Computed example of a mutant assay.
Amino acid sequence: MIHEYALEPTVLSAWASNHRDYAEFLREYGLGTPRIVSSFPKRKPSKLRSYLLQHGPQDAQSLSGRRYTEMVIKLTESVVIRDALDHQASAWSDAAIAENHRAPFGVILSSSAIEAENNVTPDSMYLEGSAWNHCGQMEVKRTNSGIFSVVGDLLRLSSKHILIIDPFGWSAEAINFIRFMVHGISRDRLTDDLPKIVLFFKEKRGGVNAGGGSPSADHVKNQVMQGLGEKFGNIEFEVFELRETTVGDVFHNRCILTEHGGVVTGHGIGVSGNESHTDEVFLMSADIYQKKWQQFMELKCFCVVSSA
Rank of each mutant, 00 (worst) to 15 (best):
V107C: 06
R102Q: 09
L228K: 00
G213T: 05
L127Q: 13
E298Q: 15
E8R: 00
S285A: 15
T69I: 14
Y29E: 13
F105H: 02
E77P: 00
E24L: 11
A131M: 10
A60N: 10
V79C: 03
A89E: 11
V182S: 05
L199D: 07
F177N: 08
P195R: 00
H277P: 07
Y5A: 02
A89W: 07
Q294M: 14
G169M: 01
M138Q: 04
V250S: 15
N118E: 09
G270E: 05
E275P: 12
E298C: 11
M225T: 09
L109G: 00
P45C: 04
S276N: 11
P34N: 09
K42C: 15
T245D: 09
G270H: 06
G268C: 08
S159F: 00
H267L: 15
N253I: 07
T143L: 01
F40Y: 10
L163K: 10
S130D: 01
P104D: 04
A103L: 13
G266L: 14
G146C: 04
V140Y: 03
L109H: 06
G56Q: 05
R243T: 10
N144W: 00
D94K: 01
P57Y: 06
S13E: 09
P57T: 03
G32I: 01
V271L: 10
I269S: 07
R67I: 04
W293E: 13
Y22D: 05
L31V: 07
